[in-house]
């Protein structure tokens, strides 16, 4: 269905369960940031839908990590990932659980 994502294409359903006479047409437009659909039923009913595919200019807000700040010394030994803990939008550091509370093989 997405073999040709930038141009309108028609699809028909698989013959082992889809009666003929219907179509679903799709057109994806990266510059407009939208995808449009036209559904035609076997009985002629038609429905149209449009959805956004992105909120930003294509690819512009995706970082190139090789050019970003390097991780701090020793951070590799912590549990934090890139952008964390700031990127979690929470107060404090990553949550964890005390091993004292672990229970082996009990039935919850």
């Amino acid at each position: 269905m997405k073999a040709c994502p930038n141009h309108a294409i028609d699809v028909r359903g698989y013959a082992d369960f889809a009666p003929m006479g219907h179509s679903v047409r799709v057109r994806r437009e990266e510059e407009k940031g939208t995808i449009s659909w036209r559904i035609k039923f076997r009985n002629g009913t038609e429905k149209n839908f449009v959805s956004p595919i992105t909120t930003k200019p294509w690819g512009k807000f995706i970082p190139k990590l090789a050019e970003e700040d390097k991780p701090n010394q020793g951070e590799i030994t912590t549990q934090r990932l890139y952008t964390e803990p700031k990127g979690l939008n929470i107060d404090g550091d990553l949550p964890t659980v005390s091993k004292d509370s672990f229970k082996k093989g009990v039935y919850y």
Partner: peptide, 25 residues
């Protein structure tokens, strides 16, 4: 209704195709 259809169109378009083919609105 829009949410119900777009749910498939942007994820499992084959289901929208099946409904169109079998007149399932």
């Amino acid at each position: 209704e829009t949410v119900g259809w777009e749910n498939f169109l942007g994820m499992t378009v084959g289901q929208a195709v099946v409904w169109a083919s079998q007149n399932i609105d």
